[in-house]
């Protein structure tokens, strides 16, 4: 796979459409760029096409028209297996293998990539530490873990082969409020250290504002607008405004301030 200059977008959608086999269109005319090291949040209601967009990146779905480029190369060509192994993937249901221990779950991709057993073991230890789990947990099975622990294992597994890109589909959606808050905080500090390119799907504006460098708002299979968290709060776009209205007060305090619009944002405050 050829790699473009490092300042080019890591992921690029060029006029992408996706149509179900029965002819129903789920996504159309999508143009979007994801920059290196940013967390792009796809925000939208269910059926807005955000998960579809995510699955087009690792080619779990194939576009009906248009092109998806990862590191400058179209995903339509080249080896789909190595593409997927170079991209970490976390889903809401987590999808941990119930018949594998935590260690085997996390170490699976390194193992099938042919890493020596000792190195896989070391990597698993390192990852467990990274997601703040006790190393004793390695020998347990997924059903013996709490929801929050499972989700951390899911994140550790996605990071196992050190992919530069991470796709996360409502990873914290099924957690209770306190665990979700904790994991969001850890995600931010992890992202601060690892600097991955992350595409994050959520329907929760609060989560989007908190975690995202930019927010791509989607509705009915179309991209409405892409805004920074600060811009989002001030946006005149009717859908964005509706979101802000629906989620109520106190949103300013959660917004991700690590982006360049921070000063802008402060000035914009009433």
């Amino acid at each position: 796979m050829k790699t473009n200059a490092s300042d080019g977008p890591v992921i690029e959608f060029r006029d992408v459409a996706y149509v179900l086999p029965n002819g129903q269109s789920l996504l159309s005319g999508l143009n979007l760029e994801v920059r290196r090291g940013e967390t792009l949040v796809l925000l939208g209601r269910s059926g807005s096409g955000k998960t579809t967009t995510l699955k087009l990146i690792n080619r779990l779905l194939t576009p009906a028209s248009g092109e998806v480029l990862v590191n400058g190369a179209s995903t339509a060509h080249g080896d789909v297996i190595s593409l997927r192994r170079s991209i970490g993937y976390v889903i809401q249901e987590i999808g941990l293998f119930p018949h594998f221990t935590v260690e085997r779950n996390i170490g699976l991709v390194p193992q099938i990539e042919g890493w020596p057993a000792e190195r896989v073991h070391q990597r698993v230890e390192e990852l467990l530490q990274m997601v703040e789990l006790d190393s004793q947990i390695a020998t347990r099975y997924p059903h013996q873990l709490s929801g929050g622990q499972r989700q951390r294992v899911g994140v550790a597994r996605a990071l196992a082969a050190d992919p530069a890109i991470l796709l996360m589909d409502e990873p914290f959606g099924a957690l209770d409020a306190i665990t979700r808050d904790q994991l969001q905080r850890e995600f931010l500090s992890l992202q601060h250290r690892l600097n991955k390119t992350v595409v994050f799907v959520t329907h929760d504006l609060r989560e989007a504002l908190r975690l995202g460098s930019r927010i791509a708002l989607m509705e009915a299979g179309r991209l409405v607008t892409v805004l920074s968290p600060a811009e989002f709060l001030r946006s005149k776009d009717s859908l964005a405004a509706a979101y802000v209205h629906a989620f109520g007060d106190g949103l300013e305090s959660v917004a991700n301030r690590s982006d360049s619009n921070r000063d802008d944002f402060n000035r914009g405050r009433p």
Partner: peptide, 27 residues
Amino acid sequence: VDPAVVEAGRGMGLTDRQLLFQVELPL
């Protein structure tokens, strides 16, 4: 077999054969 498990496996880059022998058949 839980579709989420299969999707996670596919998304992680398991080949069809690996998915069959390491995930689907054991489960």
